[in-house]
Design a protein around this nucleic acid. Sequence first.
DNA 1: GCCGTTTTCGGCCCGACTGTTTTCAGTCG
Length: 592
Amino acid sequence: MAQKFSNADIANLLRNIAVAYTLKDEKKHRFQIIAYQNASEAISHSTIELQDVYRDKNLEDFPGIGSSIKKYLEELFEKGSVKHFNSLLETVPKAVFPLLDVPSFGPKKAERLVTHFHLSNPKTVLEDIENLAKNGQIAEIPGFGAKSEQDILRALNEYKRGTNKSDRMILPYAYALSQTILEYMSKCPEIIEIQPLGSLRRMVSTIGDIDLAVTTHTSEKVLDHFVSYPGVERVIERGPTTAAILVSGGKHIDILVLPPESFGSMLQHFTGSKFHNVTLREYSLKKGYSLSERGIKLLKEDSKMKTFTDEKSFYNFLGLDYIPPEIREDQGEIEAAKTHTLPNLVELSDIKGDLHIHSNYPIEPSHDMGQDTMIAHVKKAEELGYAYIGFSEHNPSVMNHTPEQVIEILKRRQEFIEQKIKSKFNVRVFNLLELDILVDGSLAIPDKTFDYLDAVIVSIHSSFSLDKKKMTERIIKGLSHPKAKIFAHPTGRLINKRQGYQVDWEVLFDFVKTNNKALEINSWPTRLDLPDVLVKQARDRGIKFVVNTDSHALEHMDNMFYGVSVARRGWCEKKDILNTYPVTKLENWIQE
DNA sequence: GCCGTTTTCGGCCCGACTGTTTTCAGTCG
């Protein structure tokens, strides 16, 4: 049985190969180094396991992997190690590698320290360096000085405390932090325009640090104001046009300040993603343009930099349609912008209803129930301009009730919805339920109860550790019930807390498509499930989605925005999202 | 070592900042 290698293991190995080449001869191996770094990053960002790609014999299709790396990876999966890699890694002192995880340490700095002091133990190297710095021995090496010695001490200290390793922020937290900073910055009268960019503008599910762009004619004053922010723990850097601060909680805030005529190129540059920018710049180079945050340079002539006040004209100048920030991930959007085939992304205002609401109706559920009444939720739906709403409390607990009691509860609930809710509002109310798919694939309530429901949402709330094949069969069996229409929070992940369970997505996507079911895009900020990457894969196969909030209280219904952002990141158009349909069209699908 | 709508050969993003320098190397995004 071959060894199991995680994507993180493989990415780390390839990064170390890049490091080995860097130390061996950076000039000579320049492009190999880039190739190994690219492969490493692509693998670490992938949501599919590379070992599965290998098993399916698709390694050559994986971006960043060509014929050479493919051969080495095959050797890795078959034999457990790679001869060529091993001999390369032997040329690097082992104590170098732990240092590479510490910010501000790169291959060169790590190697110089390790060789100079003959450090050989990777387990103690961090402490060894710390002690040397404390003794003032590092400042004495040529090329180092008192300041860099202090920087090393601080970097090690922050790394040890986990300051830089803390969880990436979930979206509402990042929003709140950016709002606090924006409020503070708004007191600076020299600012003409300010906007958060980076992964927050792209609405990535987790945010590393906050990026701000500012236009002004007096950058000095703006930067002075920025680094004087009261919550600042440390000013990381401060130059004429950029600065970075560390605030409590270990979060970085970066700022870029430019005159207004460059606002377009600045937005473009600082929004990213890095992968999008690299590909865009490579594409532009071939057309004779060099791109930067300051504008576009024509390589042929000695003409001065062409500047752009808005992003649309920047993209248009390159012969591209405007690309929405959410899909700037180098997933084919540049090609699509060129051929005018970008998707017309779904908007929050396209949403006509929310089908996953937990009210406080006394259903005696198996899991948590909502806080607010059905009536309050319907009123809120009216305020949001919705045409319909679906109540989908958890099923009544089967442990505490006989089947007859469960049937009775749902019969009473149906009567309540018909008589007390439906007749009183213009919003169409769907009588749904969120049902557990049990470990054997059966649904948690007696079959007779389905007579009292319009349809059900099914989901996994137990036995998360089934193997991939069994889990996939379990889901498909549960979803096979004629009244099961939506598979909720399909991966089961909880951001920063729990990985999703194992599912064979190819098989599940086929089933969902063939049987006209839908996958939920759950808007709960720590779920955002189905994740964007899988949304795009499913959408490419023609699968339909329902964007739901999974609300347990009135105010949760405002989270729809996050789910729509996930749909947009998955390239979804209005037609891909079932709860953008008018009520009769949605009714037809539910009753199919 | 990877990659392809001017290429299966000949390219490979771009600039910021810091610390140690006296013109640059290293790291970061």
